[in-house]
Simulated scan of single mutants.
Amino acid sequence: MDIAFLFPFILLIGVMFLMTRSAKNRQRQAMEMRDAMEPGTGVRTIGGMYAQVKEVREDTVLLELTPGVHALFAKNAIGAVLDADEYERIITGAEEVDDEEAPVVPDDASSLTETSDDTAEDRVELGKEGATAEAAAEEPKKDDGERGSRSDS
């Protein structure tokens, strides 16, 4: 057999091995996260619902959706176990405000360009009465054979 014939198969087997290994790592991390659940912990389900853990069973978990409203979910339906601070922030609707890291967004685009006094003199206002004849003289003239050419007579 030729080694060039075997190379694609070896490459395919290697890629498949790496893919299954990373999938197993993700499953292991999800299982560890779900095992870390205990009563009082805030969670987010895979459907996007936020709730507080009331009871952890073998394959299920009892969640308190709102005070006095309980629902039984499969452990596999838990998408994320949240920190206490993050859970409270989400439930209360408080937004994180960090003035130092917040990007500054200008009100208009004029603050994005630098203008100085010497460049302001060179600026030409097109379509306004203040447009100078110099700007029109700088426009390249077209030959008679080109489309849209002007006659200067």
Score class of each variant (00 low, 15 high):
112 L>G: 01
87 Y>Q: 03
107 D>F: 14
133 A>G: 03
90 I>Q: 10
84 A>Y: 05
84 A>I: 11
118 D>V: 11
108 D>Y: 08
73 F>C: 01
128 K>C: 01
58 E>L: 05
144 D>H: 10
53 V>T: 15
138 E>L: 12
77 A>W: 04
103 P>Q: 09
88 E>I: 11
87 Y>R: 06
68 G>R: 09
79 G>P: 06
83 D>E: 13
132 T>W: 01
106 P>E: 06
78 I>N: 00
117 D>T: 10
51 A>L: 02
96 E>K: 13
80 A>H: 05
109 A>R: 09
111 S>Y: 07
89 R>N: 09
89 R>W: 07
101 E>R: 13
138 E>G: 03
84 A>R: 06
149 S>C: 10
101 E>D: 12
81 V>S: 05
148 G>H: 13
90 I>K: 09
86 E>G: 04
68 G>F: 12
90 I>R: 14
123 R>F: 10
78 I>G: 01
115 T>P: 04
133 A>S: 04
53 V>L: 10
53 V>W: 00
120 A>G: 05
120 A>Q: 09
103 P>F: 08
102 A>I: 14
104 V>K: 08
130 G>H: 04
69 V>L: 05
146 E>P: 03
136 A>C: 03
140 P>C: 01
68 G>A: 03
72 L>F: 07
137 A>Q: 10
131 A>H: 02
78 I>E: 00
67 P>E: 14
55 E>H: 09
145 G>R: 11
118 D>W: 08
85 D>V: 05
65 L>T: 13
111 S>K: 14
71 A>C: 02
105 V>R: 15
84 A>S: 06
61 V>A: 02
64 E>Q: 13
138 E>V: 08
110 S>W: 14
69 V>C: 01
77 A>V: 07
86 E>R: 07
144 D>V: 13
131 A>C: 04
129 E>R: 12
106 P>R: 08
68 G>Q: 07
134 E>R: 10
78 I>H: 00
122 D>K: 10
131 A>P: 02
134 E>N: 10
77 A>C: 02
84 A>K: 07
55 E>T: 11
132 T>V: 06
105 V>T: 15
95 E>Q: 13
116 S>H: 06
112 L>Q: 13
124 V>A: 08
81 V>P: 01
79 G>C: 05
131 A>N: 04
58 E>I: 02
125 E>G: 09
49 M>S: 04
146 E>L: 05
78 I>W: 00
88 E>H: 09
125 E>F: 10
112 L>N: 11
78 I>F: 00
72 L>H: 07
111 S>C: 05
128 K>Y: 10
51 A>F: 00
126 L>H: 11
107 D>C: 07
144 D>I: 13
54 K>I: 08
130 G>T: 08
51 A>Y: 00
